[in-house]
Design a protein around this nucleic acid. Structure first.
Length: 535
RNA sequence: GUGCCCGUAGCUCAGCGGUAGAGCAUCUGACUUUUAAUCAGGUGGUCGAAGGUUCGAUCCCUUCCGGGCACACCA
């Protein structure tokens, strides 16, 4: 280990950021992990019930942060792996609303997702389709991970040894599970779910006999005929909670995080894992996200905000920052937290340049980017862009750039690509949140006369760069038409031409926007074009 | 009931051992003439309560009060 790496390692030991706290808990496991597998294993699970969502992103992002911290902590001397496991062998319990071909799918209910034809017709199965979506989703963020299909794990025999061991420990597993179940569920519960050889469905049936020596279970198939199947080779899968514990044991998972809603289950997974002779992974539980009303975000309710929505108005980095910050606190995840996340990210980035050693490792920037910290900084805040876009009432990136150049000379879309992206986000924000609130009104006769004169004056200013000259003229026109107080004159301009009570300093706006276009804007407003649009 | 989280300026939150911070809101001033933005500055908090540890606690520990959430099934 060279000196620089060693210095980093020591800094990592001191660093107070939560990923380091978690990564430190892994250190005592290193030798055992290396002997057993040759690497330390991080896992995240992916449920089959839907498309990748913000929780999926959060879990992978945060696990990656712990993994990165661990690598630093060990001077990168310990190999690591991140498995993203898709539970694609789970039976299709219900047909998702957001897919086509419901009729076809109906025939395949309860079958493993990887045995259900793809309703989109693009992949070899529904499970494969979802898996592809998951991977594309994760890849779009550049996550490093190894995808694992539960179906493949089962069918390849990778878990056979552990499944046999679980069969041998059947009674112990039942002893853990039964007290957690309701009375009626207890009667039929089995940690093994056979796949019916006749119908291909995942069966939730009681076991009549088990034969640990032969590695088989005996049960009644759907048609009532008694059936004996090996638990190996993908003929059976395990029921959720034992499945979790068995997978931990079978793969040798060293770290896994989950939401608070799994907290009580984590204990059960661990017990199962221990029964199977393995040490349960280091676990980390995070708080759930809340929506604007303080309610838990769930896919089925569709409240809160999606990854796609976030990325419509802000950068992936800002989302990663949000995930980094306070994972143990229940945070509101809604539109209004976005601008702050964007600017906080920019501020941390700025600060990062002046920090060193431990301080850097405690910066969110390190946990978001590792050693690939972007070079570009932000001379203009997102909050300012949003203000500009609202105040100017113009959702054109070109105009916005006019303001920006005015504000921060030397900045350009070519040189400041990230800023240009921010401009794009601001424009979209305007379109979706500001524009709908606009209320244009018609001009009174007096206002109309003044505005017509203003438009004519603007025509005479074509090519004029000096905002003050234009501003002066605006005052003159207002006075000439006897607006008292003069404030009403400005109000009229904004209400008629911008659909809002306040607006940009009009002289500045006209100079940047172009006097010709500004005049045109006024004329169109006078013609009543905007009033109709708003109504 | 069990567990997790939160309680810091009017609002939203950051800080987590060394004389209280940010954004927004509000107020004042600057930008040659009453709008916005921008800039400069100000107001505003006994850091939920009480004990404890400490030379020293918003920050650690305990208890209490108040609030939110999770814990059937499914994953």
């Amino acid at each position: 280990m060279d000196n620089a790496l060693n210095a980093l390692r020591e800094a990592a030991l001191e660093a107070k950021a939560w990923p380091f706290d978690e990564a430190k808990k892994l250190l005592p496991r290193v030798d055992k992990a290396l002997n057993a597998k040759g690497y330390v294993l991080f896992e995240t699970g992916y449920g089959p019930s839907g498309l990748p969502h913000i929780g999926t992103f959060g879990e992978v992002a945060r696990t990656t942060m712990v993994r990165r911290a661990f690598r630093l902590l060990t001077g990168d001397s310990v190999p690591t792996q991140l498995f993203c496991v898709s539970d694609d062998m789970d039976g299709m319990r219900k047909i998702p609303d957001n897919v086509p071909n419901h009729e076809m799918l109906k025939e395949h209910l309860q079958k493993p997702l990887t045995d259900v034809p793809d309703p989109f017709g693009t992949h070899e199965s529904f499970g494969a389709h979802n898996n592809a979506r998951l991977r594309a989703f994760l890849d779009s963020f550049g996550f490093e991970y190894t995808f694992k299909s539960a179906t493949e794990l089962y069918r390849s025999g990778a878990l056979d040894a552990m499944l046999l061991r679980a069969l041998g420990k059947f009674d112990e597993i039942m002893a853990v599970m039964l007290p957690t179940l309701g009375p009626e569920r207890q009667k039929t519960y089995s940690p093994f779910l056979p796949i019916s050889p006749k119908t291909g469905r995942v069966l939730y049936v009681p076991m009549k006999r088990i034969d640990a020596a032969a590695g088989t279970v005996t049960f009644d198939d759907e048609d009532g005929e008694e059936m004996t199947l090996p638990v190996t080779g993908g003929r059976c899968k395990m029921q959720w909670k034992p499945d979790f514990g068995m997978r931990w044991a079978g793969l040798g998972v060293d770290f896994e995080m989950y939401g608070k809603d799994h907290l009580t289950n984590g204990v059960i997974y661990s017990k199962i894992c221990s029964i199977l002779g393995a040490e349960p992974p280091v676990q980390f539980n995070y708080e759930l996200f809340l929506d604007d009303k303080g309610e838990k975000i769930s896919k089925s309710k569709g409240n809160g905000i999606s990854v796609e929505q976030w990325l419509t108005y802000a950068s992936p980095e800002s989302l990663a920052l949000f995930m980094y910050q306070k994972p143990k606190t229940a945070k509101r995840l809604y539109f209004d937290v976005i601008p702050k996340a964007v600017d906080d990210y920019a501020a941390f980035l700025e600060k990062y340049d002046t920090e060193e050693g431990v301080k850097r490792l405690e910066s969110p920037i390190f946990h978001i980017h590792g050693d690939r910290v972007p070079a570009e900084r932000f001379p203009v805040s997102f909050a300012l862009l949003l203000n500009l876009v609202s105040a100017s009432g113009t959702a054109s990136s070109e105009t916005l750039w006019g303001f920006i150049r005015n504000y921060a000379p030397g900045v350009s879309p070519e040189k400041n690509k990230k800023l240009d992206e921010l401009v794009g986000y601001a424009v979209r924000y305007y379109e979706d949140f500001v524009k709908p609130t606009k209320r244009y009104r018609r001009a009174s006769d007096k206002e109309r006369a003044a505005l017509e004169e203003l438009a004519a004056a603007l025509d005479g200013f074509v090519g004029e760069k000096d905002a003050e000259k234009i501003q002066f003229e605006i005052y003159e026109i207002g006075k000439r038409h006897a607006f008292e107080p003069l404030r009403d004159w400005f109000k009229a301009i904004y209400e008629v031409a911008f659909g809002q009570e306040q607006g940009p300093r009009f002289g500045t706006f006209a100079a940047i926007y172009g006097p010709r276009k500004a005049a045109d804007l006024i004329r169109r407003a006078l013609a009543g074009e905007f009033v109709k649009v708003a109504a």
